[in-house]
Simulated scan of single mutants.
Amino acid sequence: MASATDVTRPAALPLPAASALRRRLTGFAERAALPLLLVAGWEAFARSGALPPALLPAPSAVLHALADWVGGFDESTQSYSGHWLQDALASLSRVLAGYAIAAFAGIGLGVAIGWSRLIERTVEPTLQMLRPIPPVSWIPLAIIWFGIADKPAIFLVFLGAFFPILMNAIHGVRSVDRNLIRAGAMMGASERQLLTAIVLPAALPSIVSGLRIAIGSAWMLTVTAEMVAVKSGLGYVLWDSYYFLRYDIVLAAMISIGLLGYLSDLGLKAVAASVLHWQRATTVQGR
C-alpha cells in the first residue's frame, strides 16, 4: 500500500541547478574539444620550425593580428588596424542582399515548379542548364555589367545561393504526401488554400535545409567576389594581405569568415526551431 508521502510526492522533481550547469559545461566541452585540439596541434607544429613563421604563423600570432585588426591597439596590422568591424559589415551587407534576393526567388520558383506541371516544363529545363555553370565563371560578365562595386558581389552571392534554395524547395513540394492534398481537396479547399495550408508547411523542412546550405555558399561567393571585383570587405583584406606576405592577416580573415558564417547558420537554426516547432531538435539518438 502506498504511504501518504508517496501520494503527495510530485510526479517529477525539477533538475537541480548544479546538474543543469554540469550538463551545460559538458556540452561546451564536447563542442570545444576538437577545435582546441586542432589549435594546440597547429601551435606545436608552427613552433617546431618545420616551416618558417612567415609562411605558417602560429595561432597566437594570428590571434594577435586579429585582435589588432578588431581593436587597433598596436597597429601591427598597419592599414587594417581597427577596421575589422567596417570590413565585416561590408561583407555581411553583400551576403544579406544577395541571399535575400536568392531566398525570395528560389523559394517562389521552387514552389511554383514543384506545384505546376506547366511551369515545370517551361522553366525548369533552362534553370537546370544554368545550374552546372560555376558562379565564379560569371565574374567577368558581372564586372562588365555592374563595374567594381557592391553589385557584382551581390550578383554572385545570388547565383551561389539561388540554386540550393531552388532545388530544395522543388524537392520539398514534390515530397508532400498526396493523401494530405486529396484530403484537403475533399474538404473543399481551394488551390490557394491547399498550397498555403498544406503544401508549404509540409515543404518547410526541405526549404530550411536549402536555406542553410545556401548561407554557406553566400559567404564563399562574397569572399570570392571581394577578391576580384570589390575593394572592401573581408575577402578584399584576405587577398590584399596575401600580396604583402601577411599570412597572419590572411588566416585572421579566414577565421573571421568562418565565424560569421557559423553565426549566420546559428541564426537560421534559431529561426527554423521557432518555425518548425513540431520537429524535435535532436539527433537520431535523441540527444
Rank of each mutant, 00 (worst) to 15 (best):
S137R: 00
A46Y: 00
P201C: 06
P10L: 15
V70E: 00
R23I: 03
M220D: 00
F146S: 03
V39M: 12
D6F: 05
A218G: 08
S3Q: 06
R22C: 07
G160A: 15
F163I: 03
G235Y: 06
T126H: 10
P53E: 15
L200W: 02
A218N: 07
P16D: 14
L21E: 09
E43C: 00
I119M: 08
M1L: 12
Q78W: 12
S76A: 15
M1T: 11
P16Q: 11
L141S: 04
W145Y: 07
A100C: 09
Q193R: 14
S206G: 02
L55A: 15
I144K: 09
G98W: 09
E120A: 11
D6T: 09
T77V: 15
L34C: 05
M187R: 14
E30H: 13
E191N: 15
D68Y: 04
S19F: 02
P205N: 13
G184L: 05
V228Q: 08
L51C: 10
A17D: 13
W84Q: 03
P59E: 04
I207T: 05
P53F: 09
I257F: 03
A33W: 10
L66D: 04
L234A: 01
D265L: 14
A273V: 02
E120R: 12
P35Q: 05
R246Q: 07
G172H: 11
A197G: 04
P201R: 09
S116K: 09
R178C: 06
L194D: 02
M220R: 10
R192E: 10
V208D: 00
A90I: 04
W115H: 11
V237L: 09
G216M: 06
G235M: 07
W219V: 04
P201D: 05
A272E: 15
R47Q: 13
A197T: 13
P16K: 11
S81G: 11
V199R: 07
A17K: 12
V173G: 01
S60M: 04
A67C: 03
S274W: 12
A18H: 05
A189Y: 14
E226C: 08
A2L: 14
S3Y: 05
Y262L: 10
P152F: 07
I215E: 00
H277R: 11
S256G: 09
A142C: 08
V95L: 12
G114A: 08
L238S: 02
A20P: 00
R9A: 15
L96F: 12
V173D: 01
L38S: 04
V39W: 06
P132H: 13
Q86T: 14
S116L: 10
T8P: 00
I119Q: 01
Y262I: 01
G172M: 11
I143T: 01
R192I: 12
L37R: 00
S79K: 13
P125L: 08
V173H: 02
R22W: 12
I119N: 01
L259A: 15
S264C: 09
L21Y: 05
L180S: 08
K269L: 14
A272H: 04
T126D: 06
E124Y: 05
G261R: 01
V176S: 09
R24W: 08
P52G: 09
V230L: 12
G108L: 08
E43R: 02
S256L: 02
A65I: 03
P10Q: 12
A67N: 06
S79Y: 14
D87V: 02
